[in-house]
Amino acid sequence: MKKVYKIEVDCPNCALKVEECIKKLEGVLDASVNFMALKLTVDFCDGADEQKVMKAAQKAAKKVERDCVIYF
């Protein structure tokens, strides 16, 4: 299942790091951050709990950049 979220992230390098972190989360098959469009695309594993995964994603993103917000 693929879903697209709006993401607020300031620097392009941080976007890349956020992408890396989210890719490593449990329940995530693949993730990509489009810095130009400010969009996060997450491909979930089958049966993954979207809310749970996205909460973890938000937490991971905050660690990289304090102001990073994912709208889910």
């Binding site: 620097c11 392009p12 976007a15 890349l16 489009n34 810095f35 130009m36």
Partner: peptide
């Protein structure tokens, strides 16, 4: 950063 942003 210059690379990471300018290419995409």
């Amino acid at each position: 950063c210059a690379l990471v942003i300018s290419i995409p």
